[in-house]
Design a protein around this nucleic acid. Structure first.
Length: 265
DNA sequence: ATGGTAGGGCACCTA
C-alpha cells in the first residue's frame, strides 16, 4: 500500500470487441489505476493487449468464446495472478470452464474481479447453479481474506442487495437478482468482513448500474444496482468516494452496464 | 398475454 489516491473501477462491457472504443475513451477521461471488466466474450488470442498497453494499461484476461470472460487492466505491475475459484470445477453438468474470476495483487492490494452467475429465473437450474457457485465463492474468499487483508472484490454480482437497489421492488419481488436466497448469499459475503463501498457514502436516490436494453430501461431509469465494489475491513476507513458514472450508458451502442468507481486514500 | 433489445454467430442461447 503506497499510492494515494488509488482508484479502481468495475464495468461489465457486454463484449469487449464491441466496447473497446468506449473503454479506451473512458480511460482517457478517467485515468484510474485499475479497471476490472466482465463479459469480454472473447478468447485470450483476440484480447486487445496491444491497444491497452498503448493506452498505458497492463492486462490479464481469463477469456472464452461467446460467454463470460473477465479481465483486470492496471497501470501498475500485477503479481500472483490467479484464475477461477480454486478447487471449483464443475457442478451438475455445467461447463467446467466458465471464465468468471480473475485476481491479482496490485500495489499491495488484492484485486478480485468477479462475474457472478446470472441465474436466469428463480425456478431454473441456472439459479441452483448460481447458489452453488456462490457457496464455493464464499468458501474460497474466506481463505483469500486471511491471505490478503487488503482486498477489493469488484464486479457484476447479479444481485441487488436491498430494495432501494431496484427501480420497482414490488414488481420484482422474489424475482431473479433480488430474491431472498440471492440476498442471503450477498449477506454471507459481507459477513466475511467485506463492505459495500457505495453505501459508505451518501448517494442519490435510485442509483443503478445496469438497465435492461428493452423497454427503454435507461431512459425511464428502470435499473438495478448489481455491480459492486466491496472492500475488506483493513481498507474500509481508507475509502474516500464511490460513484456510478452514467456517462458511458448514454453513448451510442452502449453496454447495458455502466462503470462503478472507488477511490482509496 | 412472457412481450421488448443486444451480442455472438448463424440456430438459438444468454443476459
Amino acid at each position: 500500500m503506497k499510492l494515494a489516491p488509488f482508484k479502481l473501477a468495475t464495468w461489465n462491457v457486454n463484449s469487449l470487441n464491441v466496447r473497446l472504443p468506449h473503454v479506451l475513451d473512458w480511460l482517457r477521461e478517467n485515468p484510474i489505476d485499475v479497471l476490472c471488466l466482465q463479459e469480454t466474450k472473447q478468447e485470450d488470442s483476440k484480447f486487445p493487449y496491444a491497444e491497452l498497453k498503448e493506452a498505458g494499461y497492463n492486462a490479464v484476461h481469463a477469456g472464452q468464446k461467446t460467454y463470460n470472460g473477465v479481465a483486470i487492466l492496471s497501470k501498475h505491475d500485477m503479481t500472483d495472478v490467479e484464475h477461477g475459484i480454486a478447487g471449483f470445477h464443475s457442478i451438475a453438468g455445467y461447463e467446467v470452464e466458465q471464465k468468471r474470476v480473475i485476481a491479482a495483487t496490485i500495489s499491495g492490494v488484492r484485486v478480485v474481479c468477479l462475474y457472478i452467475v446470472n441465474g436466469q429465473a428463480v425456478d431454473s437450474e441456472k439459479y441452483e447453479y448460481k447458489m452453488r457457485w456462490l457457496a464455493a465463492l464464499i468458501d474460497w474468499l474466506s481463505g483469500e481474506l486471511k491471505k490478503y487483508p487488503n482486498l477489493v472484490l469488484l464486479g457484476d454480482y447479479n444481485i441487488a442487495p436491498e430494495d432501494r437497489d431496484c427501480h420497482d421492488p414490488k414488481l420484482w419481488e422474489g424475482q431473479i437478482l433480488v430474491s431472498p436466497r440471492e440476498r442471503e448469499m450477498f449477506a454471507k459475503i459481507t459477513a466475511l468482513g467485506l463492505h459495500d463501498s457505495f453505501r459508505l457514502f451518501e448517494q442519490p436516490e435510485k442509483s443503478f448500474s445496469w438497465w435492461d436494453y428493452r423497454m427503454m430501461g435507461f431512459r425511464r431509469n428502470f435499473g438495478m444496482r448489481i455491480d459492486h465494489i466491496l472492500v475488506s475491513d483493513a481498507l474500509k476507513s481508507k475509502c474516500e468516494s464511490c460513484i456510478i458514472d452514467k456517462a458511458p450508458r448514454k453513448l451510442e451502442r452502449p453496454s447495458d452496464h455502466t462503470p462503478v468507481m472507488l477511490t482509496i486514500a
